[in-house]
């Protein structure tokens, strides 16, 4: 188990002069998307970036006109269009010989659901984009409705008895496009996260990063517990931290210990999961099968 060395987020010389997420923004305390933005900010460093953010929580973050909580140019895209807008921005940068890196920053609703066709097409065209999905497993902006990223058993305002289907494997879907880089990031493992963001910002072609982002409001969890929850999700094998390059070179970046207590703890610490809705044997079996598949894909490879 790779436990984080930094024990959370610390300011360092890696920070941008103007952080990507500026102080004074209105995000909730404990918002995983805020933490993801701070890590992405470090991954970007001093490189020129432009962001395309669809009508997810991430654009509410920007604040009301004419303010902007972002330390980089941002286009507030229509919900399904982050990757299409970004395509136009990236092509314009390319034909003008500019080094600008274009980044989509979208929630799970804008990625797994309404933006899927646009995202898939941009990946298929191998556009020169980094697409970051901060996945809080609900439509957070609208008050917490089910998305196709909502996990099995989770209660949302539109699944009052718990969701009946498991979530989609977005990294597998994106990797199946044969894109240069598809990875998942754990916010509880900042070194891994920083390394991946940094690499992904610089790589040419389409890059996809999936971030499991705790949402205290939607998950009905303690704001201070977000990083702990992610650590439990990784330890239990529920959230695999992995990378797939060029569609087939797969690595597992954080080896879980498949601790069943960690899994039970993960569910117990969020009120979106009720005992009667969570079918623990089914989830354990799903984790086992998923890891058999991942081991085959990565040929047992674990990053040193």
């Amino acid at each position: 188990m790779n436990e984080p060395a930094l024990q959370g987020i610390a300011h360092s010389c890696l920070d941008r002069k103007d952080p990507l997420l500026r102080p004074g923004n209105t995000n909730c305390g404990g918002c995983g998307m805020s933490i993801a933005l701070n890590m992405l900010s470090r991954g970007i460093g001093d490189r020129r970036v432009q962001l395309s953010i669809p009508a997810c929580c991430g654009i509410v973050t920007a604040g009301p006109f004419p303010c902007s909580a972002y330390g980089a140019p941002v286009v507030a895209a229509t919900f399904a269009s982050a990757a299409a807008f970004a395509t136009g921005m990236a092509r314009a940068a390319r034909m003008n010989g500019e080094p600008t890196r274009v980044i989509c920053f979208a929630g799970d609703g804008g990625t797994y659901d309404i933006g899927m066709a646009t995202l898939s097409a941009a990946a298929e065209r191998n556009e020169d984009l980094l697409y970051v999905c901060y996945d809080n497993e609900i439509y957070g902006n609208t008050g917490g409705q089910r998305s196709s990223a909502t996990p099995l058993g989770a209660r949302t305002s539109t699944t009052p008895h718990g969701k009946e289907q498991p979530k989609k494997d977005i990294v597998a879907i994106m990797a199946a496009h044969g894109i240069p880089y598809a990875a998942s990031i754990s916010l509880a493992h900042p070194e891994d996260a920083y390394t991946k963001f940094k690499e992904a910002v610089g790589l040419p072609g389409f890059r996809f990063i999936h971030v499991l982002a705790p949402c205290p409001t939607g998950w009905k969890s303690e704001p201070a517990a977000g990083i702990d929850l992610i650590r439990l999700a990784v330890r239990s094998g529920l959230f695999p931290v992995r990378t797939v390059r060029d569609g087939h070179f797969a690595t597992i970046d954080v080896e879980p210990d498949f601790d069943q207590d960690a899994l039970a703890d993960y569910f117990a610490r969020q009120r979106r999961f009720r005992k009667e809705d969570v079918d623990l044997p089914r989830i354990l079996e799903a984790i086992r099968q998923n890891w058999e598949r991942l081991r085959r894909l990565s040929a047992g490879g674990v990053r040193a």
């Binding site: 807008f85 395509t87 136009g88 921005m89 092509r91």
Partner: peptide, 12 residues
């Protein structure tokens, strides 16, 4: 997306 690309490119 056709209009989406136009928007992104025009903004650039």
């Amino acid at each position: 997306s056709a209009m989406g690309v136009c928007i992104g490119m025009s903004l650039a």
